[in-house]
Simulated scan of single mutants.
Amino acid sequence: MQNQFKINCGAIAAVLALAAPGVVHADAAKDLGVAGRALTFLENGPAGKATLGVVFDPSKPASVAEKNALMAALGSGYAAGTLTLVGKAIEADAVGGAAGVQALFVTGGVNYGAVGSAAKGKKLITIGSDMACVRSGACAMGVETEPKVSITVNRAAAAAVGASFKAAFRMMITEI
């Protein structure tokens, strides 16, 4: 009985640790680096200093943790090739009214459909580290850095916001 109690407590502790606000499964700085570099391959994409909206759901601890990690990585400016990204935290419900951003990084756990629709209406490219967002068409681009770097572009979502990538970049990505 006591061993079963210890096992149950251990399982509960593991689940709570995974859901803790400070836990981020992916490396936000790596994801940001890949996303920033990818933005430099956009035809007529942002150049110089650009604002990246970091979309999060305040009711989801993992989304808030990812937002916090991304904002920390952005700091006062994150250099990605010729582009310097600055961050602006945006609650998922406020994407439709977001102003002054050139792209959106969508954190895991937000309502992808609503965010994707609002972003399409504003012609903003959406990037996320959750491939479910890309498969759903709410994110035009997905970046993964673990176990290896991979970039997936949803052609329809990219076309819906008028985003097209340079040929050299298209040879390095997966398109769906």
Rank of each mutant, 00 (worst) to 15 (best):
Gly10His: 10
Gly10Ala: 13
Ala11Cys: 09
Ala11Pro: 00
Ala11Lys: 15
Ile12Val: 15
Ile12Ala: 15
Ile12Leu: 15
Ile12His: 10
Ile12Lys: 06
Ile12Gln: 14
Ala13Glu: 07
Ala13Thr: 13
Ala13Gly: 14
Ala13Cys: 09
Ala14Val: 08
Ala14Leu: 12
Ala14Arg: 05
Val15Glu: 14
Val15Ser: 09
Val15Cys: 10
Val15Phe: 11
Val15His: 10
Val15Tyr: 11
Val15Asp: 12
Leu16His: 10
Leu16Trp: 12
Leu16Ile: 08
Leu16Thr: 08
Ala17Glu: 11
Ala17Trp: 00
Ala17Met: 08
Leu18Gln: 14
Leu18Pro: 00
Leu18Ser: 04
Leu18Tyr: 12
Ala19Arg: 10
Ala19Pro: 02
Ala19Asn: 14
Ala19Thr: 11
Ala20Lys: 05
Ala20Asp: 15
Ala20Trp: 04
Ala20Leu: 10
Pro21Met: 10
Pro21Lys: 09
Pro21Ser: 11
Gly22Thr: 13
Gly22Cys: 08
Val23Thr: 11
Val23Leu: 13
Val24Asn: 04
Val24Gly: 07
Val24Asp: 07
Val24Trp: 03
Val24Cys: 09
Val24Lys: 00
Val24Gln: 04
His25Glu: 02
His25Trp: 01
Ala26Tyr: 15
Ala26Phe: 12
Asp27Thr: 07
Asp27Val: 05
Asp27Tyr: 10
Asp27Phe: 04
Asp27Arg: 00
Asp27Gly: 02
Ala28Pro: 01
Ala28Gly: 08
Ala28Asn: 03
Ala28Trp: 01
Ala29His: 07
Ala29Trp: 00
Ala29Cys: 03
Ala29Gly: 10
Ala29Leu: 06
Ala29Gln: 13
Ala29Arg: 15
Lys30Trp: 06
Lys30Pro: 03
Lys30Cys: 03
Lys30Tyr: 03
Asp31Trp: 00
Leu32Asp: 03
Leu32Cys: 06
Leu32Ala: 05
Leu32Pro: 00
Leu32Ser: 03
Leu32Val: 03
Leu32Arg: 01
Gly33Leu: 02
Gly33Arg: 01
Gly33Ala: 15
Gly33Pro: 01
Gly33Trp: 00
Val34Ile: 12
Val34Gln: 01
Val34Thr: 05
Val34Ser: 00
Val34Arg: 01
Val34Leu: 06
Ala35Tyr: 03
Ala35Met: 11
Ala35Lys: 01
Ala35Gly: 07
Ala35Asp: 09
Gly36Leu: 00
Gly36Glu: 02
Arg37Val: 07
Arg37Ser: 08
Arg37Gln: 13
Arg37Glu: 07
Ala38Phe: 08
Ala38Gln: 05
Ala38Trp: 02
Ala38Arg: 01
Leu39Val: 03
Thr40Val: 07
Thr40Ala: 10
Phe41Ile: 05
Phe41Gly: 01
Phe41Met: 06
Phe41Leu: 03
Leu42Thr: 01
Leu42Trp: 02
Glu43Leu: 08
Glu43Val: 15
Glu43Arg: 11
Glu43Ile: 06
Glu43His: 14
Asn44His: 13
Asn44Phe: 06
Asn44Ala: 15
Asn44Cys: 05
Asn44Pro: 06
Gly45Asn: 07
Gly45Ser: 10
Gly45Cys: 06
Gly45Leu: 09
Gly45Trp: 11
Pro46Gln: 10
Pro46Arg: 00
Pro46Tyr: 04
Pro46Trp: 02
Pro46Thr: 09
Pro46Leu: 04
Ala47Gly: 10
Ala47Cys: 04
Ala47Trp: 03
Ala47Met: 08
